[in-house]
Structures are given as structure tokens and as C-alpha cells.
Nucleic acid binder design. Structure first.
Lengths: 191, 191
DNA sequence: TTCTCGATGTCATCAACTGACATCAGCCTA
DNA sequence: TAGGCTGATGTCAGTTGATGACATCGAGAA
């Protein structure tokens, strides 16, 4: 018989999400999470660098997907276009209609706590950096690389928040396309 | 004779900046700051909500200036134009050539620590929200308001970081104008 | 059988905060 | 001018997040 239950990480994640949803982020102690998962506080911190990080596990994969799509854009693709294509692809893979309920629950938790919003912003900032690097590697000069990446992440964020808040069920892609069009119109119209 | 030395807040700020510069953010304890300022840890926390916040005091004034300038744009001004004008004004008021050394020191401290970067991003996110609200109040619909505000803050951030890193001394405005032009070109060129 | 390894537990410690209450110079008022 | 009030600060005790050092002990290798 195995000495420990398998799936420690997943158990910790599930417990954390449930408790945060029940009691809020600040109302939940790490000791509580660990004990409900049948583990120790110390073990929690072996799997997650801090209490916030649990909600952002899997971010690497997410970021890597973005980067791959940017890198895979046909040579000669305009940087901004490469970025929007990557976002579209990620939106399709990671945010189909069926995932909306989960995304909404998670986002509700994050939005309720400044500390979690901070962490979310830091992650998105990391994403920006990674995409900018990917663009630079395919020859985009500065400041075009950073600007394209930043605008891309902005578009993603705005579209995501509208998708999560929307009433009708559907994928994120149509909303995304709207937001891209709107941004381009805005920049074009500016005096 | 006064019971306490005046200028407590300022003393704490100065001490904090100095210690962070000397020893880094993590290498400095609040107890250390307080004691060097001739005060108690408890008093520190009466002035600043947490250890990071010291570096971001004055953010309200900064944000208010942005908002005022957006609100003061002539009626009919395009949202993106209103935002870029506001940034230009703030750049002139808050970031003249003479302020560069200070800005650089502060930014070096922030960039060296993820926790401080988080806080910075949260503040900028607050700024975005405030500008979006100001735009909405002058009739800009969604998602144009949010997008203009987001792009505005992006432009500001990119320009700021280039200004801080630049070799020649000068104000932030010329760099800013470059970045705006580049962003518009990017959006226009996208397929 | 014995050894080693890796996941977990135990324990001690620190630093960031927070609430409750004490102190006391200077001002206000009778 | 006595006496009380106020507001900035100190004191103290406690909680929680986070980290290092070391112990434990099944499982699988040698």
C-alpha cells in the first residue's frame, strides 16, 4: 500500500479553490487548506510558493502556448497580426464555451481580493514579456515588439472579462474579434 | 517643545527609500526602518498600509492629474486623443529632465523585486480604471473607454521605461510622442 | 536483506501585520 | 490657571504566511 495518497498537488488545488469560494481568500488560512487536504502546512508550501500561487498554476503552459503561436506565424506577418492570431488560437484552445463557468468562478475569487489581482497582473506582465521576446526573435524591432505584445495582452484581457461577464454562452473568439476591430478603429480615429 | 518630531511621514519615506536602495526590499525589515526613523513598527503601519506602499505614496495625486486632464479635453475630442493629451500633460508636470535620477533610483528598486512590481502593476491598473471612468463620463461608450485607457497606460509605461533607461537627459515628452506614433502605425499596418 | 531515495511530517523561527489599551504634551475652556 | 480632551505615538500580545533543518518511513533498487 502506498504510503501517501497520490495526486497531492491536485488535491491541494481543489481544496484551495473550494475554500476560497466559500470563505474568501483572506478568510482561509493555509493551515486550514492543508488540513482539509489531509496534509501539513509545510507540504502546501512545497507545492506552491505562496498562498496566491495556487490559483495561477498552469500559467506556464498558457504562456508557452501564446509564445508558440507567435513564433509559428508565417514569416513576414506583421507583429500585431501575429499577436492577434496567437490570442485567437489560445482563446479557442483554453476558453471554449464549456469552460466559462469555471473561469467565472475563478475570476470572481480573484476580483474580490487586491492581492490576487496583483498576482494576476504580474502573470499577465510575464506573458507580455514572453510575447515581446518571441516577436523580437522573429525580427520585430523595439518598441514595436513591446507595444504589440502589450496591446495583445490588453485585448486578451478586455475580451476575457467581457466573455466571463456575458449572458449568452459561447466561445471567446467572436468577442475577441470585436475588441480587435474596436482597438484598430480607435487608433485610426485619433487626431 | 513639541512632544514628537514633525514630518513623520516624510521621515519614514526617506528612510525607507534609503534602506531599500542600500539593502534591497527583502533585506530591510519594517522594524529597521522604524527604528532608524526614530519610531516604532506600529507607527509605520499607521502611516502605510504595508511595507510596499511607501514607494507608492502620492499615487492618488498622480492619478487625479490624469483624470483631470482627460475630463478637461475639449468636447468632441476622440477618446484616444484625450488620453494621449493627458499623458503628455502629466509627463510634463511630473517627469521633467531634473526628476530622472530620482525616478531611476525608485524604478531600480521596484524592478528588483516581484512584490513591488506587483504593487506597481496594481496601481497602474487603478489608473487605467480611473481614466476609463473619466472617459465614460464624457460619453465614450464601452469598450472604447477601457481600450483607450489601457492603451494610454501602456504608452505611458513604455515611454517611461525608455525615458528612465535613456542616456541623454531630457524630458519624457519626445519619447512619448514617438511611442504614440509607433502604436498608431502598428495598428494601422496590421492585416 | 539491506540501502537509498523521495515525499511528507515535525519543530523552531522570523517578519509582516493587527487590535486593544496606555501615555502624555499641548490646546481648549471654564 | 486647573482640569479635561485630543491626537500622535508607544507597548504588548497575538495571528498568519513563509522558510530552514532535520526526522520519518514505505517502496523499489542492489
Amino acid at each position: 500500500m502506498a504510503r501517501w495518497q497520490p495526486g497531492t498537488r491536485e488535491r491541494l488545488q481543489a481544496t484551495t479553490l473550494a475554500l476560497f469560494a466559500e470563505q474568501g481568500f483572506e478568510g482561509t488560512t493555509v493551515a486550514e487548506i492543508a488540513s482539509r487536504a489531509g496534509l501539513t502546512e509545510r507540504t502546501f508550501f512545497r507545492y506552491f510558493a505562496d498562498k496566491r500561487e495556487v490559483l495561477f498554476a498552469g500559467q506556464d503552459e498558457f504562456e508557452a502556448t501564446f509564445v508558440e503561436h507567435v513564433a509559428a506565424a508565417p514569416p513576414g506577418t506583421e507583429p500585431f497580426a501575429a499577436v492577434t492570431r496567437a490570442i485567437r488560437a489560445v482563446a479557442t484552445d483554453f476558453f471554449p464555451a464549456g469552460r466559462r463557468a469555471y473561469s467565472r468562478q475563478r475570476q470572481t475569487i480573484i476580483d474580490a481580493n487586491p492581492g490576487l489581482r496583483e498576482r494576476e497582473l504580474l502573470k499577465l506582465s510575464g506573458l507580455t514579456g514572453a510575447m515581446a521576446t518571441a516577436l523580437r526573435e522573429r525580427g520585430t524591432p523595439e518598441p514595436a515588439a513591446v507595444l504589440s505584445a502589450e496591446c495583445g495582452v490588453t485585448i486578451f484581457r478586455v475580451a476575457f472579462s467581457r466573455w466571463v461577464a456575458a449572458n449568452e454562452d459561447g466561445g471567446m473568439v467572436p468577442i475577441l474579434d470585436d475588441v480587435v476591430a474596436e482597438l484598430r478603429a480607435l487608433a485610426a480615429r485619433a487626431a
